[in-house]
Design a protein around this nucleic acid. Sequence first.
RNA 1: CGGGGUAUAGCGCAGUUGGUAGCGUGCCACGUUCGGGACGUGGAGGCCGUGGGUUCGAGUCCCGCUACCCCGACCA
Length: 492
Amino acid sequence: MSKVITPQKEDYSKWYNDIVVEADLADHSAVRGCMVIKPSGYAIWEKMQQTLDRMFKETGHVNAYFPIFIPKSLFEAEEKNAEGFAKECAVVTHYRLKSDPMNKGKLIVDPEARLEEELIVRPTSEAIIWNTYRGWIQSYRDLPILVNQWANVVRWEMRTRLFLRTAEFLWQEGHTAHATREDAIQETEKMLDLYADFAENWLAMPVIKGIKTPNERFAGAEETYCIEALMQDGKALQAGTSHFLGQNFAKAFDVKFAAKDGKLDFVWATSWGVSTRLMGALIMSHSDDKGLVIPPKLAPTQVVIVPIYKSPEGLEKIRKSVEPLMTILRGKQLSVKFDDRDNQRPGWKFAEYELKGVPLRIAIGERDLENGTCEIARRDLLSKETVNLSDAANMIPDLLETMQNTLLAKAKERMQNMTYRCDTYDEFKRLLDEKGGFILAHWDGTAETEEKIKEETKATIRCIPLNNTLEQGQCIYSGKPSTQRVLFARAY
RNA sequence: CGGGGUAUAGCGCAGUUGGUAGCGUGCCACGUUCGGGACGUGGAGGCCGUGGGUUCGAGUCCCGCUACCCCGACCA
């Protein structure tokens, strides 16, 4: 098994740094745990963003934007939500600084400039959005509202992990309002399916769809649906969530609508989101010892052409010879880069593009010019073949598609091989320690058992898989009867 | 907030019994190279985290402080 790229593992810091670096630690210790995403990394996020955005719009959603600050009084309106997030909120208390009379050149917070009401930096936007929706909704004719927001949020975690749990992260959060319970549940499930589709077909990352146990449920939700992925090291990662919020927020913010029959009722709600955590998921799903492997459909650069030449004239000859190829590929909406940098040697470039995960690399030298050939290298298999330059234009789109499929197939196989069924607690513990991965086991349905298992093994119930087959069994911990297996794993 | 560790060049590190700082890499210049992270020569770059103390002399020994990392507690 190839090694897994784990954020903050020293071995990988060198190349991991090429995608992202953390905030300057020495000078900005206060933003420890925040990300600085370099352009090469951000380009991947942009690609995810564009794709998701298109998918949202195809399903009738529109984008909007709401404030980053939430007045404390609004934040506390939905009690469970407030309680759940209270421990990790950044709070704005003042709006002005002034020169420090005791310390020239320094600033202090102006005590005169205290805000009457503290502002919470959004850890999630339900509160401010539902407070706004109250003014948008009066009749069933105003529903549904299918709004998405691309934003940053802040959660002051005690311990952060690059991409997987950063103090500030980028995400999208959908917030929808519906006339009926059924509509809202349908929306929740629809968006979960959309996420699963995106994970599989774009990230090439298979996921298990399921619902969270009450313990793991989003604060303020009636039901939390999730997609769970399995990383190469056998640890699970929650890759996206979709919440059925019931009427909780409508009640907290008094959002009612008049139905067809004239009766007033509270609005039904959903919210759903995925974040820059998907970058972590992408990295940990496919990377190998040579660096990042990006599925072709998400790769900012899909094909790179590296000329091998000895003189400026040689370079120009090669440039001319590949121009038709580049034109054809670009005509097929592929992103192609011709790397004519003179300050790095070919071998260096090969290694660099492998590090960055560019799916296909074409090397072409003067020797090839004579033969009318070029060398195509696949990032996923690290394989190379020499082909006729004239055939390349036809082969490349197929190759990219094959790569995309191969990556998914490989990941699927890995997940399958790392999913175990087990019926005893001893076996359960042994599997966790020796193999990791997903474990399907019976659970008595109580929070106590769930917590005990977590305490003793660090494994959590990732989800109760949707469309689970029902079967009689006994809880691995308590021995009490159970009707279905749930998905356990140690998780990030 | 507990337990452990670290702090020396942009990055990664070494630095012996205390004697005034070095290696790798990266950077700059020139030349030779260019089909898997080239090589040669020359060069720039460090108040050794910070404040005290011991000493003729401290990167090194002692005390304080600070910051960061790892493990835990926490984690829609």
